[in-house]
């Protein structure tokens, strides 16, 4: 049981928990968080992949990939949160005033 094994197991657990959350939680915010968990799991695996075995050269490509992945994850999360906020806002409002003008198209 090396440290890599620990990393891999926890990464897979993160991925699995995230996936479970995405599929079974009904609240949108939880779904968004779950997707983030999944992403973290994948990034963790990537980092482990760059470790290199037994002192061989460290592979930096996965690290660069993780950086790219994080930025993408931030971007998607931000968009998802905005959408979720908008939806929630509408729901709140439509609870107040049920009659809403019919939108076209």
């Amino acid at each position: 049981m090396t440290i890599t094994t620990g990393y891999i197991i926890s990464a897979l657990l993160l991925f699995g928990i995230g996936m479970n959350g995405l599929m079974t939680c009904s609240h949108q915010l939880r779904k968004i968080l779950a997707v983030n968990l999944m992403a973290s799991g994948v990034f963790l695996i990537l980092i482990v992949t760059g470790f290199g075995t037994d002192g061989s050269a460290i592979d930096h490509v996965p690290h660069a990939m993780v950086l790219t992945g994080i930025v993408i994850s931030v971007s998607t999360t931000a968009l998802a949160l905005t959408l979720a906020c908008r939806i929630q806002q509408r729901l709140n409002r439509s609870a107040d005033e049920t009659a809403e003008g019919n939108d076209d198209d």
């Binding site: 995405l22 968004i32 994948v42 968009l79 998802a80 939806i87």
Partner: peptide, 27 residues
């Protein structure tokens, strides 16, 4: 908006699976 959020979540699930697969192939 509801459709778009669902679309986003679906495509995130898809692309994360893709990324995970990529990582495994890279390994």
């Amino acid at each position: 908006e509801v459709a778009a959020l669902r679309y986003l979540l679906v495509s995130l699930l898809g692309s994360l699976s893709y990324l995970f697969g990529t990582v495994l192939l890279y390994r």
